[in-house]
């Protein structure tokens, strides 16, 4: 029963995704005002040649701050999971 429901969901999603894939025009994005502004003015506003870097570290730097915090949180979580336990401190699950 559960696998039948999952299969029906997958088939419906497959039809929807494949229909969307053939109907979106590739290579001609409809709205590109923001990106054209970045390409036209990014070099004189940040004086960096690489527009992607100037977006990552200047225009959308708050995004990068959040990304750095996510990476720090992941490292913190892994170090909590694998911290060295003493022998008698081991959890008992069985």
């Amino acid at each position: 029963m559960r696998s039948i429901v999952a299969g029906i969901t997958l088939v419906v999603l497959a039809v929807a995704l494949l229909f969307a894939a053939v109907s979106i025009p590739f290579g001609n994005p409809a709205m590109s005002d923001m990106d054209d502004y970045f390409i036209a003015h990014g070099q004189e506003q940040t004086s960096a040649n690489n527009i992607v870097t100037s977006i990552v570290f200047d225009y959308r730097a708050f995004d990068t701050l959040g990304e750095a915090c996510v990476l720090f949180t992941a490292v913190f979580g892994v170090s909590v999971l694998f911290r060295l336990r003493k022998k008698e401190e081991d959890y008992e699950y069985e």
Binding site: T46, S47, A48, N49, T53, S54, F57, D58, A61, T64, A68, L71, F72
Partner: peptide, 17 residues
């Protein structure tokens, strides 16, 4: 020697990663 704070932030994120 261009781009202001962007190379500094590049180095910072590089060390962090």
């Amino acid at each position: 020697n261009t781009a202001g704070t962007i190379p500094i932030m590049n180095i910072a994120v590089g060390i962090e990663v």
